[in-house]
Design a protein around this nucleic acid. Structure first.
Length: 277
DNA sequence: GCCAACGTTGGC
DNA sequence: GCCAACGTTGGC
């Protein structure tokens, strides 16, 4: 079985949840060297962690911060085991539905490997993903057209909210290159306005009405085609909660890879992670 | 089983 | 701080 590669997020900035700081930066990671990846409360992310094997490589991503992006490399140091923080009432991600004899949430241990020589900002990925395949920027021309293709389909670009993601080997190789070589520091990393530009801001008339909290989504967009996601090879049961596409925008999303142990229920938090203690 | 409402993620 | 995106819940 081919080695798999992963991307895991953590928040480098302080954020207090239930009185505890959930911050976990690359500095923290480097300092502790090995860390349990607790706090993931999203089924798909959890299932991905259950697939992880000791020794597999991963990138460490800074999320929900001023400059999100890939900060370091890591490897899986322990396969999935129950996330004991889900049993701790005082923990930010306590889940009363998770029982000791039937854990609902799992985590792996990750070991810090090295910092990325060049921090790779999300804006770079987004920018590259917005380009035509045959117009590679000279500054990072070394990634080639295949590199652009690989980036366009990265989960990081297409599935922003997933906190634990798989990284395919093409993307993995590009990440290695980028982290080693850099070169984009002078680039203007704004995405190249793509099709779905949505700048329809009202021309503000003078007493405009505020229109409630309804945000109409223009639909019709539906660009997504790739959504590759090979997916879900759950090892557990098949996923039940199948797709629930939301009506509005014909989103195609894959089934929520889930499994839920008998009663579905659920916390509504998603996959954030990490709580320092 | 559909889908509107709700609540969270997380970029900007 | 705003708000689009989207996972989840719950009414029907």
């Amino acid at each position: 079985m081919a080695t798999k590669y992963w991307l895991l997020k953590a928040e480098p900035d302080s954020r207090i949840v239930k009185g505890k700081d959930v911050k976990f930066s690359v500095d923290d990671f480097e300092r502790v060297s090995v860390s349990p990846w607790e706090g993931v409360r999203n089924y798909e992310a959890r299932n991905l962690m259950k697939e992880m094997q000791v020794g597999e490589k991963a990138v460490f991503y800074h999320s929900n911060c001023k400059n999100p992006g890939i900060a370091a490399f890591a490897q899986v140091a322990r396969e999935a085991y129950p996330d004991y923080t889900s049993w701790d009432e005082s923990h930010p991600y306590y889940d009363p539905k998770s029982e000791k004899d039937k854990p609902k949430w799992y985590m792996v241990d990750l070991e810090f490997t090295a910092r990325a020589k060049h921090f790779i900002p999300l804006t770079l990925f987004r920018h590259i993903a917005s380009l035509a395949t045959d117009e590679p920027p000279t500054e990072v021309g070394y990634i080639g057209e295949d590199g652009i293709r690989a980036i366009k389909t990265m989960n990081l670009v297409t599935r922003g909210r997933l906190s634990v993601q798989r990284v395919d080997s093409n993307a993995w190789n590009i990440i290695q290159l980028l982290a080693a070589k850099g070169g984009w520091e002078e680039m203007d990393l704004k995405p190249k306005k793509s099709s779905h530009t949505k700048m329809v801001k009202p021309k503000s008339r003078i007493g405009e009405v505020k229109a409630g909290k309804k945000k109409e989504v223009e639909q019709g967009i539906e660009e997504e085609s790739p959504l590759s996601s090979l997916d879900s090879d759950e090892e557990g049961k098949p996923d039940i909660a199948a797709v629930q596409s939301r009506g509005t925008a014909s989103r195609k999303r894959k089934a929520p890879a889930d499994e839920q142990p008998h009663d579905a229920e659920g916390l509504r938090r998603s996959g954030r992670r990490r709580v320092r203690n």
